[in-house]
Design a binder for these strands. Structure first.
Length: 309
DNA sequence: CCTATTTGACCATC
DNA sequence: GATGGTCAAATAGG
């Protein structure tokens, strides 16, 4: 097959590529429906990661042949770069015993610039900007609102990426550990995460075997030591929208959460999902191949890999 | 006095 | 007009 596609022109390959995209989309949708988002904590992680990588590849594809991708309607999923700032939501549980209130400690410095009562909610929404907005022109913002259902949970919506120097020293790969040590730690954490995922997911499991196989593969690791809980927003930021926001320089990644208040290992600790432009995160290891494989056979192979999920 | 937070007013969007 | 988001003056705290 690869030999055949290698000799084909892009136009000849178009139906094949579109078919693969369709298959990939079906699998993603299936995966999405396999998780009970309301109860599956770690499962939240998977869909954004896969969608992110998928979107990354689509963007690569658009670079190869923009017409093929633009012709393809991914059921509203646009591969074009999102014009608005990236936005994502996570939930942070605050330990009542600590009495922690107010701004969620997530490693960054924020300055509150407003608070607003939101219709239909019992708790006001707080508006925060990066404390280095003026000094370093950092445009990161976040909104924090206490959940009505569980008052120990704060819904934190992040907007924009940190460009301040504070983001620099929070990057896990900027730590003093060697790359090998970091990889080892990540691998170990990955295994723990997989165990958590397997035991903590309450969704349907019959279709997850292949996904778990990928997760078990030696090449797979989660991006950092912490486990983010990216929560896809229900209304304006559904999965399709999220996917469109995940351009190659806009990945869902996580970074270590360094709060002294979160020492309980089994508790639902605050996690941060930050938007980091420079992270080379590619859990399925195929984006880099697509990058280097501007010849169509490899491209086809990579799409087939998605199919193999 | 300086910095951060609060809060009412204003603006944009639907 | 209702609502969410932002601004900026007032206020609080060190």
């Amino acid at each position: 097959m690869e030999n055949n596609t290698r000799s084909m022109s892009y136009l000849d390959q178009k139906p094949l590529i579109l078919n693969e995209l369709t298959q990939a989309k079906k699998l993603l949708k299936q995966l999405e429906s396999d998780f009970d988002v309301a109860t599956c904590t770690n499962g939240h992680l998977l869909v954004p990661i896969i969608l992110s990588t998928f979107e990354k590849s689509l963007s690569m594809l658009s670079g190869i042949n923009s017409k093929i991708v633009s012709d393809y309607d991914l059921n509203g999923i646009s591969c074009k770069k999102r014009k608005t700032v990236p936005r994502w939501t996570e939930q942070v549980r605050v330990c009542e015993q600590t009495g922690l209130e107010g701004p969620i400690e997530d490693g960054y410095s924020w300055r509150k610039y407003g608070q607003k009562d939101i219709l239909g909610t019992r708790h006001p929404r707080g508006y925060y900007k990066c404390a280095y907005k003026n000094a370093q022109d950092c445009l990161a913002m976040k909104q924090v609102q206490r959940s009505d259902e569980d008052t120990s949970i704060f819904n934190v919506t992040y907007r924009g990426k940190h460009t301040c120097t504070e983001a620099e020293h929070l990057l896990p790969w900027k730590s003093e550990n060697s790359p090998d040590q970091e990889n080892e730690k990540r691998l170990k954490k990955s295994q723990e995460t997989i165990i958590n995922f397997q035991t903590g997911c309450h969704g349907k499991t019959e279709d997850l075997n292949t996904t778990q196989a990928v997760l078990r593969s030696p090449s797979f690791s989660f991006p950092s030591d912490s486990i983010p809980i990216p929560c896809i927003e229900k209304e304006s930021h559904n999965n399709n929208d999220i996917l469109s926001s995940m351009t190659p320089d806009n990945h869902f990644v996580s970074s270590p959460f360094s709060s002294p208040k979160t020492s309980e290992s089994n508790s639902f600790s605050p996690y941060r999902v930050q938007d980091l432009q420079t992270l080379d995160f590619d859990p399925f290891g195929f984006t880099s191949t697509v990058t280097s494989a501007f010849d169509s056979a490899d491209l086809y192979f990579e799409l087939g890999f998605i199919d193999g999920l």
